[in-house]
Design a protein around this nucleic acid. Structure first.
Lengths: 168, 168
DNA sequence: CAGAGGTTTCACGAACTTGTGAAGCTCATT
DNA sequence: AATGAGCTTCACAAGTTCGTGAAACCTCTG
């Protein structure tokens, strides 16, 4: 039932986990993720349950339900968490979708690159390409397109690559 | 030198450029870059000079020299700007190193991924891999390693790829 | 349809971030 | 040595972000 976990049988272990989650979240924040979503994600990834109620997350992380509410909403929107509901139950369940998780991760990255590419393209429209600045913008656009192809390809290859690593 | 630029001959054009820089910076900020470094980078990329003094940046962006000082320091550290000094001159020059710029960009990304991988590895050390959470961490580490290989490979291939795109 | 478990919304205080002005520092020139 | 242009550092004020507690809101159960 997702409650008891190996990592937090004792207070000391729970404290270790929470410190770890905080360190992990810090790394995620450096890439632009907000604090509470980062904590929830790190916690759901590192702890042992495979699904969590909002209450379990609030309890496990020692934060208010309100904070969880906002965080899971964003994580669900990005696709890092899936919201589920057991029939005849009153609480939502949040699941880390292992299988697609890293595809989601790169997808989020791809969207960021696309926004980047769009603003660059809009600069080219505004200022043209017959100036030094315009040429830099044009080359940037080319590079971003290339990078997006490479990443999309990597996502597609990961399942196969994963098998290869498991065997080799 | 490097003062007069096509994009800002008139007040209207300068205003357009500044609005554009602000939009561009916003996109960069969404990926975790700080506001002022983001503005300086966007400005240096989109405007026409190929090197700027700190004073020119402050003037062009309508911000204080103090703000520029901090911003260029960070950009130089990441490698997005190169600091130069003309002999017998009192002001530093900041240069966007076109040739290696996008290699730098991916290098920064690679470092972020490495920090990510390190915190995941540290979690595996702390908690082991014989639990659900540990297995998730282990798979995450594998995926990050793969992604880093893919990106490193992409950087290596870009010069060649760039030629190909220019011709095709 | 009343009740209760669970989630979401909202206003607020605390903490953090940002950019500025002013003072201080460096260093090539005189 | 003195000058002064330019860069950096620092303390601060304004603005923003964060997480909380309390209240409102659903929605399943009896």
């Amino acid at each position: 039932m997702g409650g008891v976990t190996v990592a937090e049988n004792t207070d000391a272990e729970r404290a270790t986990l929470l410190r770890y989650v905080e360190r992990f979240a810090l790394v995620l924040r450096e890439s632009g993720m907000q604090p509470m979503p980062a904590r929830v994600f790190a916690y759901a990834l590192a702890d042992d349950a495979d699904r969590y109620t909002a209450a379990e997350l609030a309890d496990g992380l020692q934060v208010s339900p309100a904070a969880i509410s906002g965080a899971v909403r964003q994580l669900v929107q990005i696709g890092f968490l899936v919201r589920e509901r057991e029939p005849g139950t009153r609480s939502d369940l949040y699941v880390l979708d292992d299988a697609h998780l890293w595809a989601r991760f790169v997808t989020a990255e791809l969207q960021a690159l696309q926004r980047f590419q769009e603003i660059v393209a809009s600069g080219i429209e505004l200022f043209g390409t017959d100036r030094p600045g315009g040429r830099r913008l044009a080359e940037t656009r080319e590079f971003l397109a290339f990078l997006r192809e490479v990443l999309a390809d990597a996502v597609a290859r990961w399942p196969e690559e994963r098998e290869r690593r498991r065997l080799g």
